[in-house]
Every structure is written in C-alpha cells, then in structure tokens.
C-alpha cells in the first residue's frame, strides 16, 4: 500500500524532508523501519517513537493506516 511517512524534529533533519510517500508491501512497523534505516542509516541512532492513528504504537504493530509518523522526544511547554 501507499504510505505517507511524517518526520519531525531531529528526524526530519536527517531525512531532509517533513514527509514522503512510499510503497510498502510488508506488514509491521518493524518492516517499515528496516526500509527507512536502509535509506537513512542515521535515524537508527536516534531516540524516537512511532505513531499510527494518532497513538504511539509498538514496533511489532501491523501497519493499518496510510499515515505513519516518526516522533522524536517531546518538548512541549
């Protein structure tokens, strides 16, 4: 399926974009991250969480929506 991946903060600095569209044929968040780590090896060294449907999900979750976000540590307030 076609996914839109959103990047924020230090992650967006590495990817040099705030979002991108890519074709995804596998199943889990882990599978997706392997793809992204191949493309942007530096992401692997950063602390981040993954969100789907506006909720933080674990890395073995199955991709079930078209928008996935990579969220570095929060700094609100």
């Amino acid at each position: 399926m076609t996914l839109t991946i959103k990047y924020f903060g230090v992650i967006a600095e590495i990817t040099q974009c705030h979002e991108e569209v890519l074709e995804f044929t596998k199943s889990s968040i882990d599978d997706l991250l392997s793809l992204l780590f191949d493309k942007y090896p530096k992401i692997k060294t950063k602390d981040f969480q993954v969100a789907m449907h506006n909720e933080i999900v674990s890395r073995d979750a199955v991709v079930s929506t078209h928008e996935i976000a990579l969220l570095p540590p929060f700094a609100g307030g």
Binding site: F8, G9, A51, A69, L71, P72, F74, A75, G76, G77
Partner: peptide, 8 residues
Amino acid sequence: IKADVPVF
C-alpha cells in the same frame, strides 16, 4: 501535556 503531546 509535557508527557503525551507531540511538540518538538
């Protein structure tokens, strides 16, 4: 807010 809101 500090813990749960994705603000950078």
